[in-house]
Nucleic acid binder design. Structure first.
Length: 467
RNA sequence: UCCCCUGUAGCUCAGCGGUAGAGCGGGCGGCUGUUAACCGCUAGGUCGCAGGUUCGAAUCCUGCCAGGGGAGCCA
């Protein structure tokens, strides 16, 4: 019987509420492993509520004892029994079953998950079953806690959560290649004068999946002052790395009456806050990642949560790299973007903790970033962290209409589609700033997981969109 | 998109010119409290795909496909 009134394993094993002990309980879960020894069997189950499994003891006194022979890894169960202190050594408490029902079997000759460790590459092919493993259960819980912590951080500071569109007609948001969203029949494209007739498309114009909610967030910042988005974004780049996804979630705060210094402080408070949050709310899962994936993980996160970030300008960063005596594969030159190896040297070896680099050359940054008085650099910032590199990119936005228009011309952009963006500078413009944080990269950093495809439930990467 | 590495049993891998292997998992049996339980027996393979070299190819060569690592692009 699928039970209402069941107790989650997490609550059952919660030492604070051990009024459960010696009382009848109902639990559900999926079988991890079954061990039988003479007249006693041990069935280890997990329901996803915590990393810890629950051991069910079934002996001949249980009327359903004969059922145990049919239980295999992966099948689902309802158990009625009594929680007791365990006689064995591997766990403090266990449930002695008084009755047992298998809800769904899992043919052991076919069920692909075994009660031993699998490689992450193999599990990636089983995205529908991998949440049942320790690692992916832990990732799901940590990801959930961090999403909640992000909302909590902004809500406590009075930020308004806004939802920006996923489909956009702006074809140059300035952040990479876009996916086209169309209802046109690709096998029979309507044409007009030898070109695709976009007027026949759903929106009467080309439309795309958004690469960023920034421009729309700026609209609301120019009315509500402090806003943030948290939603999916899409990049059609042919990126094949452990840090890139074609579909990923991004957090983008946008703040009016704020300059780059204020934004850098917000970014630092934000990262320190969410890492502290995950350490506090997921100690069991974090201990798991620390043990199996990165022995320095908890120490690193605690260090970040408790110490100030380093700040330097791009020009200072270039000087430090030039003076480092390191032999880099790519030369260091003022005016060229920092390479991965440069960023990692700065954050991992030079400083040893997160670094905020500001004021990049205007030529290598987007048109909407505010031009400095030197005419050569813009008020951009990247937050670099060890192992991942860039985790946040942001800037103070250009609020001066004439400068913005000049920058758009220099970038070769037609300003007509941006009439509304320019209007924000025409009517009550303000100094404002915002950044974008890759959510998966942040969870990746917090868990010590090596590959971003293991951070999102159903990863989309080039040539890969199963599930 | 570029560079490098890897595709052998359900999984993890060994074998690297001469009869296809191990551990785990599965099946059967045993075991009175187990902890990825343990012990015994057992089934299981177009060696990624296509071509080539050779008396003979999992093994050497070429192409393609897939996976991984790194780079670029970025978050």
């Amino acid at each position: 019987m699928p039970t209402s009134g069941r107790t989650r394993i997490k609550d059952l094993l919660d030492v604070e509420r051990l009024d459960n002990v010696s009382n009848p309980v109902a639990v559900n879960g999926w079988v991890k492993t079954v061990r039988s020894s003479g007249g006693v069997s041990f069935v280890q189950i997990n329901d996803g509520s915590s990393l810890a499994d629950l051991q069910i003891v079934v002996d001949a006194s249980c009327p359903d004892y004969a059922l145990v022979g049919n239980l295999t890894t992966g099948c689902s169960l309802t158990v009625f029994g009594v929680l007791q202190e365990s006689l064995g050594r591997g766990q403090k408490y266990e449930v002695v079953a008084s009755s047992l029902e298998m809800l769904g079997g899992a043919d052991p000759e076919e069920y692909p998950l075994q009660k031993k460790r699998h490689t992450l590459e193999f599990l990636r092919e089983l995205a529908h079953l991998r949440p049942r493993t320790n690692t992916f259960g832990a990732v799901a819980r940590v990801r959930n806690a961090m999403a909640f912590g992000i909302h909590q951080f902004f809500q406590q500071r009075g930020f308004l959560y806004i939802q920006t569109p996923i489909i956009t007609a702006s074809d140059a948001e300035g952040a990479g290649a876009m996916f086209r969203a169309t209802t046109l029949d690709l096998d029979n494209l309507p044409t007009q004068a030898g070109h695709v007739d976009n007027d026949a498309d759903f929106f009467g114009r080309p439309a795309f999946l958004t690469v960023s909610g920034q421009l729309e967030a700026e609209i609301f910042a120019q009315a509500m002052s402090d806003v943030y988005t948290f939603g999916p974004t899409f990049r059609a780049e042919n990126s094949n790395t452990s840090r890139h996804l074609a579909e990923f979630w991004m957090v983008e705060p946008e703040v009016a009456f704020c300059d780059l210094d204020g934004l850098a402080q917000l970014a630092e408070d934000f990262l320190r806050g969410i890492f502290a949050h995950v350490l506090e709310t997921c100690p069991e899962d974090m201990a798991f990642f620390n043990r199996f994936y990165d022995k320095e993980l908890i120490a690193t996160l605690e260090d970040i949560a408790n110490s100030d970030f380093e700040r330097m300008t791009y020009t200072e960063a270039v000087r430090l790299l030039e003076e480092s005596g390191e032999s880099f594969e790519f030369p260091v030159r003022w005016g060229a973007d920092l390479q991965s190896e440069h960023e990692r040297y700065l954050t991992e070896r030079k400083v040893g903790r997160p670094v905020i680099v500001t004021d990049y050359p205007s030529a290598i940054k987007a048109f909407y970033m505010r031009l400095n008085d030197d005419g050569e650099t813009v008020r951009a910032m990247d937050v670099l962290v060890p192992r991942i590199g860039e985790i946040i990119g942001g800037s103070q936005r250009e609020e001066r209409l004439d400068v913005l228009q000049r920058r758009m011309v220099e970038a070769g952009l037609d300003d007509a589609p941006y009439w509304w963006y320019l209007d924000l500078r025409r009517y009550g413009t303000t100094p404002h700033a915002g950044f974008g944080l890759g959510f998966e990269r942040t969870v990746q950093f917090a868990t010590g997981m090596q590959n971003i495809r293991d951070i999102i439930a159903f990863p989309r990467t080039p040539r890969s969109a199963e599930f």
